[in-house]
């Protein structure tokens, strides 16, 4: 582990893994060496459950754009009344 920058958060949702949908329970977020993306360091998210992993490795700017986009979509959904309906 070269940067040691890592945090985990409990999540609730599903992800596609080997063409099958699996339950996801935790997201491990780190900024460290990627396995595949062509950068020295990337923002890595491992969506995991007890035994399976769905992984993404994003450039720093892509990760920031993604966070911004997620928040905008959630805010729009909330403003249009969909979040409350969904949670019922």
């Amino acid at each position: 582990m070269c940067t040691m920058i890592t945090q985990s958060v409990k999540i609730d949702g599903s992800g596609k893994h080997n063409n099958e949908w699996i339950k996801l329970e935790q997201a491990n977020v780190s900024f460290d060496h990627p396995f595949h993306a062509p950068y020295e360091h990337t923002l890595n998210i491992d969506f995991v459950n007890e035994s399976q992993r769905v992984a993404v490795e994003l450039s720093e700017s892509a990760a920031r754009d993604l966070v911004q986009t997620i928040l905008e979509v959630l805010n729009q959904a909330e403003a249009e009344g969909h979040v409350e309906k969904q949670s019922v």
Partner: peptide, 10 residues
């Protein structure tokens, strides 16, 4: 396995 170690902080 390495991803698991990474999540555990090494």
């Amino acid at each position: 396995v390495a991803a698991k170690v990474r999540a555990d902080g090494g």
